[in-house]
């Protein structure tokens, strides 16, 4: 590994993951240490028991009401998050082998599914970015909103670049992640010799930056949405 790769795709990854985990824990602590409101803020009608739990999950994962008032935005947001979940699961394969049946299936469909999801991410992110240059989203937006979208776009574009063009075998990526887990970060010969090595390092660099900023940004809504949606139905 060259020095730049070692620092960015090695040392910095540990820092980023540590900041992500500790940052999220700190953020949760900041919320939970404050007293809950004594006022019940939910709207009526209020579902109870199982129906309530189901409603909270549906509100958070599907947010069907939003589709009623702004269908195009709802569709983009829904597809974006679906694709995000997809690529997240896809990246989990880097950590180890899935059960054999799944491993085979995923391996077969990785190029098509991963490529599709990668494209969905780029398209929806562009849409999110462009709409922020138009009133009233423009006046509503603050630099954080643009920064996060650009950061996400960077990660996704570099990821797509690797997914669609780089001829690096999956086993080589897996080997790299294994070396990270073993605390001896190393690129195997396929990556080291590939012209796409820089693309990979940039992809990892941008992902690191995203991980570091995430716990302190509005992206914590991936946890918080369950909590606030719980309040709405209580």
């Amino acid at each position: 590994m060259d020095a730049f790769s070692f620092w960015v795709a090695g040392v910095m990854v540990y820092v980023a993951v540590a900041v992500l985990v500790l940052g999220l824990a700190w953020r949760l602590y900041q919320w939970r240490r404050l007293a809950a409101s004594p006022m019940r803020l939910g709207i009526f009608p209020k579902p109870r028991g199982g129906a309530k739990a189901l409603r909270i999950v549906a509100d958070t994962l599907v947010f069907p009401q939003a589709a009623e008032v702004n269908a195009p935005l709802w569709l983009a947001v829904f597809l974006f998050h679906l694709a995000l979940l997809g690529v997240f699961v896809g990246h989990l394969r880097l950590l180890g082998r899935f059960p054999e049946f799944l491993e085979v299936k995923m391996s077969e469909s990785a190029h098509l599914a991963g490529g599709t999801m990668g494209i969905v991410l780029v398209v929806t992110l562009f849409y999110f970015l462009i709409r922020r240059f138009k009133s009233p989203s423009k006046e509503l937006s603050v630099p954080e909103d643009y920064l996060l979208l650009i950061l996400l776009l960077g990660v996704v574009v570099m990821g797509d670049h690797l997914r669609l063009f780089a001829e690096i075998p999956f086993s080589a990526y897996r080997q790299y992640v294994a070396s990270l887990l073993a605390l001896r970060p190393e690129f195997g010969p396929e990556i080291a010799a590939s012209p796409y090595k820089t693309a990979l390092v940039v992809h990892v660099l941008l992902a690191n930056l995203l991980f570091i900023y995430l716990p302190f940004s509005k992206l914590v809504h991936f946890i918080g949405a369950f909590l606030t949606n719980g309040i709405r139905r209580s």
């Binding site: 404050l34 809950a36 409101s37 509503l140 909590l227 606030t228």
Partner: peptide, 13 residues
């Protein structure tokens, strides 16, 4: 309080 912090910090605009 907890709710206020959620509402302040989670909005994605």
């Amino acid at each position: 309080n907890r709710q206020l912090l959620y509402y302040l910090e989670l909005c994605t605009r």
